[in-house]
Amino acid sequence: MTSLASPRQSFDIGRLARAVAPSLPLIVFLAMFVYLGIASPSFLEPSTFALILKQSIPTTIVSLGLATVVMAGGDDVVSGGIDLSIPAAAVLAAAVVADLVTNHAWFIGPALLIGLLTAVACGLVNAFLVVLVGMTPLLATFASATAFVGIGKVVTASRRINVTDPLVVWLRDGVIAGVPVGVIAACVISAVFYFVLHRTRWGLNLQAVGGNRDAAEISGLSPAKFIATAFVIAGLAAGIGSIFVLARGSGWAPGTEENMMMEMVLATFLGAAFSPRRIVTLWGAVLGAVLVSALSVGFGSVGIDIFWTGCIKGGLILVVVASSALSRKVNI
């Protein structure tokens, strides 16, 4: 006699998924770190840790921007908030700064200001496309990213530009009290972002908009304003990130944004797995960026083929996004 036994089974699988899905990325990461620690003794040394932090800086900064957009737009990967163009905007701003400093002998200060304004303008473009034109953020920012990369190539004629300005060199190599300057700067910037988005009324309202747009509207908040502002903040993050892009690469080189975009998406959504509320948060994004950087360093030190590294990172994005989809499915 066939009763409706199979639905009952699937119900139990659902419960299992509910219990395991949100922690899946954590489990996978933990397993990888255990493996890396065993396979490469140097992976667990303090100098490696400093290296991981240093290499994570540009990803950390752009992830702050993405986390802001996701928090304001909701964490549905397709229909919610997403900004794929942040690395492209950062690299464009870096191109502008590099061009002004190296090819036009500008002082670094005004050049950085122009770079920052460029990136903020990129954010405004996205805000316009998403809020006023009504495009899906995924499509809008994918398209604008392509445009930003193109503009960057026009500015630089697609040729590498070295930057040897003392400020950039200092951000790259400087050390204060044994801690790299870049790491300190990234911590300060992250702290400011954290305070504004998690500890102020404005930040909470922005999260409300992302969490339930109708609820926010009923509470007298204007979702469009918050979403537009989030894209501009993402542009600001891109602008700040551009300095670190220049410092990390000792100048501008074409193609830098590709790897960064993958790491940014991975870091931001990975961060959600660490949040007790299982949502994208700023500190989660920062932690995610550090973990992603740790993976890159770890794979390098074990000598894993670079192409496998790409496969593994892509696979991780799948695990992270799938687990967030699963936990959403079982939560509702």
């Binding site: 290296l51 990390r248 690469g249 080189a253 790897n259 890159s296 390098g300 670079i306």
Partner: peptide, 11 residues
């Protein structure tokens, strides 16, 4: 990727 190549020296 020239950036990844450079970072590999840190490793």
């Amino acid at each position: 990727d020239n950036q990844v190549h450079a970072d590999n020296h840190d490793i």
